[in-house]
Design a protein around this nucleic acid. Structure first.
Lengths: 301, 301
DNA sequence: GCGAATAGATGAGTTGAATTCATGTGAGGA
DNA sequence: TCCTCACATGAATTCAACTCATCTATTCGC
């Protein structure tokens, strides 16, 4: 069988063939010329083919030896190159996470360092875009999507996020300014900030507060939540956003929830991975970390 | 350095990666699972990169391990294929000899078995054609050429053959038939066979025998000596050929030299090899054998 | 839930494949 | 002619790689 190949012997032969000398090969391999001689004799005896001509005080490859050497030299070079590369790698796994821009900016970015610290062997890469990615085709391991669950392609495992709470948010200056906000109707005095892709908007909020009449035409409109949040931080109005995305702003006091932290409930985000890779340690670790981190956040919020 | 790679360890890793199991890899390598575990741990420690995830009761490649495994698997497959091929090779050297068709047919063919018998490790291949071959470009080791020495390309070593003797030859039936041939003038009664590429022809012979008038227009014409010889054997006339090419026919009595074995002297054949390969054992052996064989032949002729 | 079974990890002890050492051979150069 | 160099070869030695014994963690069957 092929596993009867002595790689030691092949290695010795490769060096000797390349250097056309047993002595130089021995030097390269940090052994004595005798060892090289033994190994090559062993190879020749095993296959019954002479690989070197021993002439005067040198060795010359036979045709069989030359063609064999050409083949294995290339293979050895490849192994050595791969091994050299391996030495340069410091992380054993690469975790590529794709998500919507808002989730990436508002939730993942502030927290991902914590994941990396707990998983030093995982090299995390974050991508963000509006479009869902093809997990089968691409190098992306995890896709965090927002919106109604479409028909899932076979082979994709989808885990829904915990229900989010959507509340009006604004800068503290706005909430405590000339027109302080204490009750829903106080919003009449302020500009509304609309997030167009959000599953729930001011229209849904008004269904819960039928006594308050707000002009839905008013205000800024953004197609990304993180822009609405940024506008709210800048005091441009009141946005209606998920607490999931504004933890950082609430913690640092850049935003406040003038009407409290209770509000509309919605389930929008999903965690998507290939079924076949769902059990990989890097995926499990990320999944478990993400959901436990989110639970912690929720309990605080 | 790269030679600090333990190929044993890489081999163990390759098998384990391919089989996704230390136990199966151990079985394949005829060792215990413990040995595989040790080797892979050694590799991981040496490069500081985890190659496998140890989960529940199985092992799964890390990303680093997978990319490494892909590289080395290909290299290992190549080594094993080359080694398998090596096992099928029985001769360590291939000697490719090209010559003119006549020398191949008349001299080499009958004798080459003797060379092979004395050099069982050399696989001899004979090619014959009128054209000189490009020793630099092609797989041909030796080219035996006929004719005036052209300007030699650099890097070609040319050895001239011993001087040949050219004499009239015919079948015994013709020599002892109705018009027996004992003296040059007896040839008048017979058809002459002409070899067009020969360096000497009947015209040259007549210069040596000015008293004999022969009609040079008569007779068969061939562009290869072996055809002329074959025609003479068939009793179609008298050819003028080198003793070098008719040893076999003289020995078996199919041809006779009615006017004796002395005649025109000519030096036509050359032995051509690459200077760079002239000292290869297979070339030296062939060269030495060929010239010693020719000397033996000459001393007999 | 509990124990049995499985797959691998680990450290100590053992072994034999590979190495060194001592010596031999033969060709080439001083 | 002798010396030197490069490799060959057989016996002795060694240490890298293996086995063994034991341990851990997880799964599976009951």
């Amino acid at each position: 069988m092929s596993n009867r190949v002595s790689f030691k012997a092949v290695q010795a032969f490769e060096a000797a063939a390349r250097l056309s000398s047993f002595a130089l090969a021995a030097e390269e391999l940090f052994v004595t010329p005798s060892a090289v001689s033994h190994q090559i004799k062993f190879l020749e005896d095993q296959f019954g083919v002479q690989l070197f001509h021993r002439i005067h005080r040198a060795v010359v490859l036979t045709d069989a030896g030359r063609s064999y050497a050409e083949e294995i030299s290339a293979a050895f070079a490849r192994i050595e190159a791969a091994t050299r590369d391996l030495g340069r790698v410091t992380k054993s796994d690469i975790l590529t996470v794709h998500s919507t821009p808002s989730f990436a900016t508002q939730w993942l970015m502030p927290r991902i360092a914590r994941f990396s610290a707990r998983n030093p062997d995982i090299d995390v890469r974050l991508n963000a875009s509006k479009e869902a990615v093809d997990l089968v085709a691409g190098p992306v391991d995890v896709d965090i999507r927002y919106g109604p669950k479409n028909i899932q392609p076979a082979g994709i495992k989808t885990v829904v996020f915990p229900t989010e709470t959507i509340v009006p948010l604004c800068s503290p200056a706005l909430a405590n300014g000339d027109h302080p906000i204490h009750f829903p109707e106080d919003l009449r005095h302020h500009a509304l900030i609309h997030s167009e892709v959000c599953l729930v908007g001011w229209r849904d909020w008004m269904r819960k507060h039928r006594d308050v009449q707000l002009d839905l035409q008013r205000g800024l409109r953004f197609d990304r939540s993180f822009m609405s949040i940024s506008a709210a931080v800048d005091g441009l109005g009141v946005c209606l956003e998920s607490l999931l995305l504004v933890q950082r702003e609430l913690d640092t006091g850049r935003l406040v929830a003038p009407l409290g932290l209770d509000g509309l409930k919605v389930q929008g985000y999903t965690f998507n991975v290939l079924k076949s890779s769902a059990d990989l340690p890097k995926i499990r670790n990320f999944h478990d970390w993400l959901f436990s981190e989110m639970m912690g956040t929720d309990s605080r919020g």
